[in-house]
Computed example of a mutant assay.
Amino acid sequence: MSIQFFKYQGAGNDFILIDNRGLSFKDTDNKIVHKLCDRRFGIGGDGFMLLQNHPDFDFEMRYFNADGNPGSMCGNGGRCIVAFAKHLGIIDSETNFLAVDGPHYAKISDEGNWVDLQMIDIDTISKDGEAYVLNTGSPHYVAQMQGLESYDVYHNGKEIRNNETYRSEGINVNFVEDQGDHLFVRTFERGVEDETYACGTGVTAVALSMAYRKGQTGHVETPVKVLGGNLNIKFDYDGSRFTQVFLCGPAEKVFEGKISI
Results as ranks from 00 to 15, higher is better:
S2W: 10
Q4V: 10
F6H: 14
Q9H: 15
G10M: 05
A11R: 01
N13T: 01
I16M: 00
L17K: 05
N20C: 12
R21G: 06
G22K: 13
G22L: 13
F25S: 12
D27Q: 13
T28Y: 15
T28N: 15
D29H: 12
D29K: 11
D29C: 10
N30T: 15
K31D: 15
C37K: 07
G42W: 11
G44A: 12
M49I: 15
L50S: 07
L51Q: 03
Q52R: 13
Q52Y: 03
N53C: 06
H54Q: 09
F57P: 08
R62F: 06
R62Q: 14
Y63F: 15
D67K: 07
D67L: 10
N69Q: 15
N69C: 12
P70K: 13
S72I: 00
M73N: 03
I81R: 03
A83G: 11
F84M: 13
A85P: 08
A85M: 10
H87W: 02
H87Q: 10
L88S: 06
G89P: 02
D92I: 11
E94L: 07
T95L: 06
T95K: 07
F97M: 07
F97R: 06
D101K: 04
P103G: 07
P103L: 11
H104W: 05
H104I: 13
H104S: 08
H104D: 08
A106Y: 10
A106R: 12
S109E: 04
G112I: 09
Q118P: 08
Q118Y: 09
I120Y: 03
I120N: 08
D123V: 01
T124P: 00
T124V: 13
I125L: 15
E130V: 14
A131H: 05
V133E: 00
S138G: 08
H140T: 06
Y141W: 07
M145L: 14
G147A: 10
G147D: 09
L148E: 01
E149W: 08
S150K: 15
Y151R: 10
Y151P: 01
V153Q: 08
Y154A: 02
G157R: 08
K158V: 01
I160C: 00
N162E: 04
T165C: 14
Y166D: 10
R167L: 13
E169P: 02
G170C: 07
V173C: 07
F175I: 07
E177M: 12
D178T: 00
Q179L: 14
D181M: 05
H182Q: 13
L183D: 03
R190Y: 11
R190T: 03
G191N: 02
V192T: 04
T196H: 01
T196R: 01
Y197K: 13
A198G: 01
G200F: 02
T201P: 10
V203D: 01
V203G: 00
V203W: 01
A205C: 09
Y212T: 08
Y212D: 05
Y212L: 06
Q216W: 15
H219F: 12
E221A: 11
P223L: 06
K225H: 13
G228T: 09
N230T: 08
N232T: 10
I233D: 11
I233T: 02
K234H: 11
F235G: 02
Y237M: 08
R241T: 08
F242G: 04
F242E: 06
V245Y: 12
F246H: 10
C248Y: 03
P250W: 04
P250A: 09
E252Q: 10
E252W: 00
E252K: 12
K253I: 14
E256G: 03
G257H: 07
G257Q: 11
G257E: 13
K258F: 05
I261Y: 01
